[in-house]
Measured scan of single mutants.
Amino acid sequence: HAATELTPEQAAALKPYDRIVITGRFNAIGDAVSAVSRRADEEGAASFYVVDTSEFGNSGNWRVVADVYKA
């Protein structure tokens, strides 16, 4: 099962156990969220919340930071 994305309210009520950072070329924010979901799932997380997204220069590469939560 894939890790689910939390709302800001849900994330605020929970304590993350880790923070992950992924970088890559994403065509849309949805693609980045899917990549975070896969990584969170690999780490055994039940859910995640994207904290920050930023573009690296003009290369089209993105850096996505997310907190991950157990259950």
Results as ranks from 00 to 15, higher is better:
Lys70Gly: 09
Glu42Tyr: 10
Val36Pro: 04
Leu14Tyr: 07
Glu43Ile: 15
Asp31Glu: 12
Ser54His: 14
Asn61Met: 15
Thr4Asn: 09
Ala71His: 10
Thr53Ser: 12
Asn27Trp: 09
Ala32Lys: 04
Leu14Ala: 07
Ala32Met: 14
Arg25Gly: 04
Tyr49Gly: 02
Glu42Lys: 10
Ile22Asn: 00
Trp62Asp: 00
Ser54Ala: 12
Gly57His: 06
Glu43Gly: 08
Ser47Ile: 04
Lys70Met: 11
Ala45Ser: 03
Ala66Tyr: 06
Val51Leu: 07
Thr23Tyr: 14
Val50Asp: 00
Ser59Leu: 10
Ile22Gly: 00
Gly30Ser: 14
Ala40Cys: 10
Asp41Thr: 15
Val68Arg: 00
Pro8Gln: 13
Thr53Glu: 05
Ala3Gln: 03
Asp52Phe: 14
Ala28His: 14
Glu5Tyr: 07
Gly30Tyr: 10
Ala12Trp: 07
Ser34Ala: 15
Thr23Asp: 05
Ala45Lys: 01
Ser47Thr: 06
Ser37Phe: 05
Pro16Cys: 07
Ala40Ser: 03
Asp52Glu: 15
Val65Ile: 12
Asp31Trp: 12
Ser37Gly: 15
His1Met: 08
Phe56Val: 13
Ala13Met: 13
Asn61Pro: 04
Ser54Ile: 15
Arg63Asn: 05
Thr7Leu: 07
Arg63Ile: 14
Val36Met: 14
Glu55Lys: 10
Arg19Asn: 00
Glu9Lys: 09
Gly60Ala: 06
Tyr17Met: 04
Ala35Asp: 03
Ala32Cys: 10
Val64Lys: 00
Val64Cys: 05
Val51Gly: 00
Ala2Asn: 12
Thr4Phe: 14
Gly44Thr: 03
Ala46Lys: 09
Ile20Tyr: 03
Leu14Ile: 07
Val50Phe: 03
Glu55Trp: 13
Ile22Lys: 00
Gly30Thr: 13
Pro16Phe: 04
Asp31Pro: 03
Gln10Glu: 11
Val21Ala: 05
Ala40Trp: 03
Ala35Val: 06
Asp31Thr: 05
Ser34Leu: 15
Val64Leu: 07
Leu6Met: 06
Tyr49Asp: 01
Glu43Asp: 11
Gly60Leu: 06
Ala2Asp: 07
Leu6Gly: 04
Ala2Glu: 09
Thr7His: 05
Phe56Thr: 09
Asn61Asp: 13
Thr7Phe: 07
His1Ile: 07
Tyr17Ile: 03
His1Cys: 14
Tyr69Pro: 01
Glu5Trp: 08
Phe48Lys: 01
Val64Pro: 00
Arg25Asn: 10
Arg38Thr: 07
Ala71Tyr: 12
Gly24Ala: 06
Gly44Trp: 05
Ala12Glu: 08
Ser37Leu: 09
Gly24Thr: 04
Lys15His: 09
His1Ser: 10
Ala3Phe: 05
Ile29Cys: 10
